[in-house]
Write a protein that binds this DNA or RNA. Sequence first.
DNA 1: GCGACAG
DNA 2: ATCTTGTCGC
Length: 226
Amino acid sequence: MAWHQQLPPPDPQLVKQLTEQQEILRQQVVLQKPDFDLKLLAGCDSSFIGENILSVFVVLSFPELKLVESVWHYGPVELPYIPGFLAFRESPNLVNAYQKLQHEPDLIMVDGHGIAHPRRLGIASQLGVLLNKPTMGVAKKVLTGKHEEPASEKGSLTPLTHRGEHIGNVIRTKDKVKPVFVSPGHLMDMETATSLVLQTALKHKLPEPTRLADHYAEVYKKEAQQ
DNA sequence: GCGACAG
DNA sequence: ATCTTGTCGC
């Protein structure tokens, strides 16, 4: 199998450069209770096709959660995947897709972590700063931190901590299904992020915004290849 | 020094 | 992320 596989060794020079840029962006992150009146909720996701990346944004009405709009952008991917630096690989194309939206969302749910990151700048936080928009992260796997397993019933949650800080919540959004890792990204707080994930996770593990973005990524993939 | 490692 | 078969349950 592949449980002992190693990731390709990242270039030290590149890591150093990205770490510096990350620090500058991190200082701009604002964690607070959002003041918006939530009407439009967006979700985004990216998929890859060879050397290119396809990013999708969907906008849903809240609390109805009906699709209002969906857009996509297809472009080249410049950087390799390095754990902890995912945003540098995906955000450029995500920003391009975002700019095609006709409706400006009040909040964006991102597939990945917010501050539940070794340096508190996951892709949700970085994208939030780049777009100056409230964001929150919804990841399927932990990147950093420790946690207990939440109870098996939907709604159960346990804290994700790192270096003594509460950086996210491990939330069971569906009975007996692996939990999701939720954390505020930018212009957002832990309580609101946690509440919104549970409010938008209907009959699936992933909340509707992220789930639909993932769905449309698959749909647009065929279109993008031509 | 030995693992872990978002998408 | 992507590569991949069959299989379990609502």
